[in-house]
Simulated assay, not measured.
Amino acid sequence: MTGKVWKTGFEIELLAPRGKTRADLAYAIAAKHGGSVNRMFYPQSEPSLAPSVQVFENLILGFDAVDESGNRVALCVDDLTINADLNRSAPPLEGWMRIVSDDGRLLSLVSKVCDPDASIEDVLKPVSNLFNTPLESEGGIFKASDEKKRPIALATGLPGERERPCEIITAPLEDNREGILGELLGTAKALGFVIPKEAAVHVHFDAERLCDARVLSRLIYCLAKHGKALRAHVGTNPNCVRLGPIATNLIELASDEAFLKSGWDEARQMLLACKPTKYCDFNFLNIAAGLDAKHTFEVRIFPGSIDADEVCGFANLFERILTWAVDQDRPACPDTIERFL
């Protein structure tokens, strides 16, 4: 069990030079594989400034670079946390837009019926047709509402150079990840992409071998114990947002005898009841949710990088930690980070 390679997916935040966009990177990647690029909507959330709404859900423009067989090589999307290096007063580029809603369920429906290749004037027409209501527009903002005038979604241009941030999302990798990342990041560097001020690298590890209450208990306990030291060890970017320590209730769950004695289905429900969040140093939400499409444990503390060897080093470090957690014959978590690593 411990000798297996962990299947990993990488999210690497970069910034295009002025005059280039994340679409340019997607097309350059696809060209190297004899493939093509599919324009798509990609979901992201951001805190709301409106007092009655906690979160705004977004559909942002993504560009899916596929090879000649139609398999994903990399997905290039926006990251709404990247702001410091952008000209916030820059007008939107022609054809660039986002769709916003205060309800993620409605936005999921929107993504199924709306065409990302449509113009901003027409993109929400399928939603208006579903509700048999007119599409409203004012000041370049297009709004679809239901029959009671309750807003469903807004489509608006994408000002502030939001075409420049690029989060490269890889397909899950097992073999030759150094070579694959080297090609992707080499293509980005050749186009002039750089590391933005708030950048991070996120690594998703396949969660199959972590689906055991005692394994998760070991992992949670040691990450809580050595979380700050691990941040210092990898050099977490102090400008990176949406990070934070493991929640107290998760740490308490890790030592709960009922949790430790439970089968995985029951343990997962107990984990889910703790309401884990994505936006922390170590993301247990995907394991708790049990979603087939993203059944991963995510590490979010790594600093931004455009160097494939460094990014692979991040993954190798945490593979050793996960292998220790899975192998319950190994000793308990040491007191110091030096002994642990």
Rank of each mutant, 00 (worst) to 15 (best):
L317G: 03
R320A: 13
V234K: 03
A31G: 08
E338Y: 13
N58T: 06
D265E: 15
H295E: 10
R164W: 07
A16N: 03
A232L: 14
V55T: 11
H226P: 05
H202F: 06
P91S: 08
T8N: 12
P51S: 11
L260E: 12
F142G: 09
L106M: 13
E138H: 09
V194E: 10
D307I: 05
K7H: 03
P91R: 06
P172R: 02
T133K: 00
N249C: 00
L86D: 13
N129Q: 11
I152V: 15
Y27S: 06
G179I: 12
S145Y: 03
R164M: 05
V53P: 01
L272C: 08
W324G: 01
Y42C: 06
P51T: 10
L271W: 06
G182Q: 00
G3T: 15
S145H: 02
F340L: 14
A84S: 15
I301L: 07
L322I: 14
C76K: 01
I306W: 02
D206C: 03
T170N: 06
A267E: 09
E167F: 08
A118G: 12
D307H: 03
I337L: 14
G160Y: 15
I195M: 04
F205Y: 12
V55F: 07
V53S: 07
A308P: 04
P159V: 09
M40D: 08
E13C: 01
D307Y: 01
P43E: 07
V299Y: 15
G95S: 08
L250H: 00
G104D: 10
L75F: 08
K197R: 15
A224C: 06
I82W: 03
E257M: 05
H233G: 01
M40C: 10
A171Q: 11
G160I: 14
K189T: 04
A155Y: 06
P126L: 01
L59H: 06
L191P: 04
A144Q: 09
N239V: 02
